[in-house]
Amino acid sequence: MTVIKPELFNSRSFIYRTHQQAEFAEVAGAAQVLSYAQQGDPTTGLIDLSVRPRIGLRGPNAEEALLASGLLHPQQPNTLTVSDEGVMVLRLGRTEYWVLALPGASADLDLDALQQQLNGPGIYPVYCHDSYTWLALAGENLADIMAKVCAVDLREESFAPGDLVMTSLARVGGIICHHQMAGKTVYSIFSDSASAGYLWEALLDAMAEFDGAPAGQNLLLVADE
């Protein structure tokens, strides 16, 4: 059996080298970290989801197209929805949408096909898979951790599940999305792909006082006992 390694694929995470001790699985033609070997799940984990499928669209007709596709539509700007099939839809401002396959998303989900479908005048693709890295911070003390890198109030009472903010973290532009997975609080963070290594280190540094550690996507699939 071939051991799955990132360099076996043309599509690679921007920070795959940081996952030296990880166990991978193939996801959408790339290697996704499942878990870190010889490590129990941390109470707070930082997970690299950069290779997970996602598409973006924007423009005056984007909303209409999204509604027609049957996706769960975020009613308000800067909010998100998560469907039972594991599809997360972000609404960034009024006319931009990202559609993302969360870990554990339905195997039938084909975002490439959806991208073809969500096409037409007044709809413009957004290259969110390549412009942005996707990191997920999951577990406890998330607002405290983010307060070390971000000036926005991300405490639960100000930043409820389903909210997202477009802001700056560690002086890099980014989008922070609050959702839940396997009973855990998750902040999905999208930020400049070229700064992924920098942000990964900055977040791990911020997590250190809370015993945070790198983790794989399994952390988002298994509920704490």
């Binding site: 921007f14 890198v149 560690a170 002086r171 070229a194």
Partner: peptide, 29 residues
């Protein structure tokens, strides 16, 4: 303390290091 100094790397950054490149700043790249 803990001033953030973002730096950007291209997708080929590590290949340049492996090839012995002398890296220089270009903006925050």
């Amino acid at each position: 303390g803990r001033i953030f100094d973002p730096r950007r790397h291209t997708a080929m950054h590590h290949r340049h290091l492996e090839l012995g490149a002398k890296m220089i700043p270009a903006g925050n790249w």
